[in-house]
């Protein structure tokens, strides 16, 4: 009996997962259709850019600055064993541009703005505001999700650039002012060793992470369950799912981009 119960539980789980993934892809399809449909809701997109992008800059400043600083300290220590401390600048910059800035920015924005998006949409769902939109013949996906999705995709690369710049600044301050590295060498090595393809790689990653962030957080809010427990569950699921997806996709994206660009 326990074998039968196990098989049926496995079957039920498979069906639920498949249905969930199918619904998520259909949701994404409606968002993509919505992006290219009229009316264009510029004001709503600007409001979301403010919410997701601008309001995340302080945390990105903090995290970026300290990440760059830590990289400089660790890099200088490691490179000093090989007598190559002059390479601290490029090490900090390359690590940030190609890997840490896109990933950490995505994780921070998911934690800060993603949870807020899911909770906000979830509460709109349970307080019948989404039903109210539909009753007024306004498509909730176009009105609520599309502006958030567009803002997420635009904000993420911009925030990644802020993270990288502040991170290099933090690395410079620690490397040059505290550890005594040559300022000319620090910046000069960065300029001569960073290629535009490195920047492109980071920007592509950030854009993809923005898509994941917008998609997962909007979808989890839109399909949120009943009551406070439903919103709580949806918010947790959104943050965990989006964060895990970012890390998994990052691996594959890095492998693919390395083959294409380098």
């Amino acid at each position: 009996m326990s074998v039968v119960r196990g098989i049926s539980a496995f079957g039920r789980g498979t069906i639920e997962n498949t249905t969930g993934w199918g619904a998520a892809w259909v949701f994404m399809y409606h968002i993509l259709v919505g992006i290219f449909s009229r009316p264009f809701r510029g004001r709503l997109i600007l409001r979301q850019l403010l919410e997701i992008g601008f309001n995340s800059t302080l945390v990105i400043f903090l995290i970026g600055g300290f990440t760059g600083a830590v990289l400089a300290v660790q890099g200088e220590y490691t490179l000093s064993k090989f007598g190559a401390t002059a390479w601290t600048g490029p090490m900090v910059a390359l690590s940030l541009i190609r890997e840490l800035a896109p990933v950490l920015t995505a994780l921070m924005v998911i934690g800060r703005a993603g949870s807020a998006i899911t909770a906000e949409i979830g509460i709109m769902r349970i307080t019948e505001q989404i039903d109210a939109l539909r009753s007024m013949a306004v498509d909730p996906i176009r009105y609520l999700m599309v502006p958030r999705f567009i803002a997420a995709v635009i904000s993420m690369p911009l925030l990644m650039c802020v993270f990288t710049s502040v991170g290099i600044g933090g690395g410079y301050l620690v490397g040059v002012k505290l550890l005594g590295l040559s300022p000319g060498s620090f910046m000069g090595q960065i300029i001569s060793n960073i290629d535009i393809l490195d920047v492109n790689s980071g920007l592509i990653k950030s854009t993809v992470f923005g898509i994941i962030f917008g998609w997962v957080c909007c979808y989890k809010g839109y399909t949120c369950g009943f009551g406070a427990v439903g919103v709580n569950k949806a918010t947790t699921q959104a943050v965990v799912t989006a964060s895990v997806c970012v890390l998994v996709v990052d691996y594959f994206l890095t492998s693919i981009l390395n083959r294409i660009f380098f």
Partner: peptide, 8 residues
Amino acid sequence: FQSAALFD
């Protein structure tokens, strides 16, 4: 709607 469903 039951709760009026106004947009917050």
